[in-house]
């Protein structure tokens, strides 16, 4: 069981739920189970450019991204990239 944590705007779109416990083998499996998946992925199935994902504190854009394997108890944190001014 992995835990996924959402930022405020996404949590509002998920009916106010910020924390999800999911059975998922990879980051992609976990994110695609979320009720806000169409805000995370575009119509071509790609993770939107300004969304970062951290697994147990490590940015998976520097690794295997959606293929990053999850372990029982992994914490997946969805974070908007630092952008704007």
């Amino acid at each position: 069981m992995a835990v996924v944590l959402l930022p405020a705007v996404l949590a509002a779109e998920a009916g106010g739920q910020k924390r999800f416990e999911l059975e998922a083998a990879t980051v992609g499996d976990a994110l695609r189970q979320l009720p806000v998946r169409n805000l995370l992925f575009d119509e071509q199935g790609e993770l939107r450019r300004l969304i970062n994902v951290f697994v147990d504190g490590v940015d998976v854009r520097g690794g295997r991204l959606l293929q990053e394997p999850l372990q029982p108890g992994s914490e997946v944190r969805v974070v908007g990239a630092v952008a704007g001014g």
Partner: peptide, 25 residues
């Protein structure tokens, strides 16, 4: 939203609650 893309929201109670369009792309 710059992070979460383009969407459409609707409210049938004058903005108290909102639904987001699910099929749009």
């Amino acid at each position: 939203n710059p992070f979460y893309g383009a969407s459409v929201h609707r409210s049938s109670d004058q903005g108290k609650s909102w639904e987001r369009s699910e099929e749009l792309g």
